[in-house]
């Protein structure tokens, strides 16, 4: 049984992949509770190009390194945008960097969303919480190349109205006349007039051709498992469903073993994986 990688869209790091280059924080803004977006510019030279769905390793010097997906527009040159939620010492150090501060940068690593394969097909984007961040580059790409794709739906679930990520972008995308944007929250205060409930409940209520569509899914694992079932119920084939997995990452180049998810090394084979590669593992606890 020989492993054959079926990389979707890979552009990977430089030759000496363990050594970071240096980038400067150009701007930083708050997205929501404990969540900040950093716009990076190169200290010298050029920033690497990335594919929607890939991630970088960001170093807070002297503190540590974390895998952060690129959340910006793949079409915009000269800067790299990452959205970081402060949960541990490293992500807190990264999220609290100020404009003018420096970070170490390695990447981009991993597979991207199958934007090529999705052409001429309907695209259903289902995301939960911070899972919208690695999907935002795909949405930017769909908007920039709108003519190449069929229907586009963005379904987003957040914990509460205050946790909604990229609120301005969601409002702007909803204003597009050829895009279906639906937002829901798990719990809401009395003044919320929007949808309350799980994001999967949108799937039967969204118009797309299940036989000719691609689904891009990112969120907590349980949310992804339920989303996949709902997509399957709607008639989407397993091969047309892509999920973005998250695991602890240290090296990002397949050498350290940390990001194993059963048969895959998430940094090398993912983070974007076709669902049929992980079908048997997604619902087993603690894999």
């Amino acid at each position: 049984m020989v492993y054959r990688p079926e990389a979707v869209n890979t552009r990977r790091g430089t030759a000496d992949a363990t050594v970071p280059s240096v980038a400067r924080v150009r701007r930083r803004w708050r997205e929501g509770p404990h969540t900040w977006t950093l716009e990076l510019e190169p200290e010298d030279g050029e920033l690497p190009q990335f594919a929607a769905g890939q991630f970088n390793m960001l170093t807070a010097f002297g503190i540590g390194e974390a895998a952060i997906s690129v959340s910006g527009d793949p079409g915009s040159k000269g800067t790299l945008v990452h959205t970081v939620r402060a949960v541990g010492p490293v992500s807190t150090a990264l999220a609290t960097l100020q404009s003018g501060d420096y970070v170490g940068l390695r990447g981009p690593f991993g597979t991207g969303w199958p934007m090529q394969e999705a052409q001429q097909r309907d695209v259903v984007i289902v995301s939960g919480g911070l899972g919208l961040a690695p999907l935002r580059p795909a949405i930017y790409h769909l908007l920039a190349e709108r003519q190449r794709y069929g229907r586009v739906a963005v379904l987003y679930g957040s914990r509460s109205p205050g946790d909604i990520l990229f609120r301005r972008e969601l409002q702007r995308w909803r204003g597009e006349l050829d895009m279906d944007v639906k937002v829901t929250v798990d719990h809401a205060p009395d003044d919320w007039r929007g949808n309350v409930g799980v994001v999967t409940s949108f799937i039967p209520r969204t118009t797309f051709d299940p036989a000719n569509s691609v689904a891009l899914v990112c969120g907590p694992e349980l949310m992804m498992a339920f989303t996949v079932s709902a997509l399957q119920d709607a008639g989407v084939r397993d091969e047309a469903i892509y999920i973005s997995m998250e695991r602890n990452m240290k090296c990002a180049v397949g050498l350290c073993g940390h990001c194993q998810f059963g048969t895959t090394l998430v940094c090398r084979d993912g983070p974007v994986l076709p669902f049929d590669r992980v079908r048997d593992m997604l619902t087993i606890p603690e894999i």
Partner: peptide
Amino acid sequence: FCTTVEDASDLTGKEA
């Protein structure tokens, strides 16, 4: 073969 990494800095924060 698994490895992890540890980052360190000196007290002044000038070396990492």
